[in-house]
Computed example of a mutant assay.
Amino acid sequence: MRSTAAEDYVKAIYHHTEWQPEPVTPSQLATRLGLANSTVTEMVKKLAAAGLVHHRPYGAVELTPEGRRLAVRQVRRHRVVETWLVERHGYEWDEVHDEAEILEHALSDRLLESIAASLGDPERDPHGDPIPAADGTVRRPDAVLLADAPAGHEGAVVRISDEDPAMLRFLADAGIALDARLTVLGVKPYSGSMQVRALRGTVDVGPDVARAIWLAA
């Protein structure tokens, strides 16, 4: 089963568990994909019948080994394309996701690998997500979520979630990008905002932002 829909589903399942251990539920999957719960339920049944996922009624959805291979293939395609658009075509990091969603399904394997080679076989995309190697190997950096980092923790930014383009623009304006060094100063009383010291000075980030940034552990 190699339809565009199946590729999008297994990729979404993979994304959910890439940086945290909890498996995805059908309702969470529906939210991530912007689809009705009933639509997702029917597709999950088809994926299970095709051997791409494990799913019990009312339970979580998990990839089978075959499903994971397909997901990693699509993740590689998506992230190579994102990197190509930023490095060769002048896109900003908040502009590439939707373009990559289209192109990842259209490029031949030969063209994709040619693009990857022309970029020097990059190991991460513009947001710090690891690009799986052509053989499916994935090397994820040892990282801690900013929201979980204790006061005094200092480290380089290794990953920023790309789910909210507006947040990416806010962080760029604040001087927070990949490889920027941050020092956690602590959480402000009552407001819940986390204070971090960046190159341009102290920045207050809300809980949603703190859950979207990973620092080197």
Rank of each mutant, 00 (worst) to 15 (best):
M1V: 14
S3F: 05
T4Q: 00
A5G: 01
A5E: 12
E7T: 02
D8R: 10
D8F: 07
Y9S: 00
A12N: 14
Y14E: 06
H15M: 11
P21Q: 14
E22Y: 03
P23K: 06
V24L: 03
P26V: 05
L29D: 01
R32C: 00
R32G: 14
L35Y: 05
A36W: 09
N37G: 15
V40R: 03
V40Y: 01
T41L: 08
M43Y: 01
L47T: 07
A49M: 10
R56K: 15
R56A: 02
P57V: 08
G59I: 13
A60N: 01
E62N: 05
G67A: 06
R68K: 00
L70A: 09
V72F: 01
V72G: 02
Q74K: 02
V81N: 07
E82L: 08
E82R: 15
T83G: 03
W84H: 02
L85W: 03
E87Q: 15
R88N: 10
G90P: 00
G90Y: 05
E92M: 07
W93R: 15
D94Y: 11
D94A: 11
V96P: 05
E99Q: 13
E99A: 15
E99G: 04
E101G: 09
L103S: 07
L103E: 03
A106H: 05
A106I: 14
S108E: 08
E113Y: 04
S114V: 11
I115W: 02
R124N: 03
G128Q: 10
P130R: 03
P130T: 06
A134G: 04
V138G: 07
R140I: 10
L146F: 03
L146I: 12
L146W: 02
A151F: 07
G152N: 07
H153A: 15
E154H: 11
E154V: 15
G155W: 13
G155K: 09
V158W: 09
R159G: 06
I160L: 02
S161V: 06
D162N: 11
E163V: 10
A166T: 06
R169P: 06
A172T: 13
A172N: 11
A177L: 09
D179W: 15
T183R: 12
T183D: 04
L185Y: 15
G186D: 00
V187Q: 12
Y190D: 10
Y190Q: 05
V196N: 01
R197T: 14
L199E: 05
L199Y: 08
T202Y: 08
G206L: 12
G206I: 09
P207D: 04
R211Y: 10
A212V: 04
W214A: 02
W214Y: 04
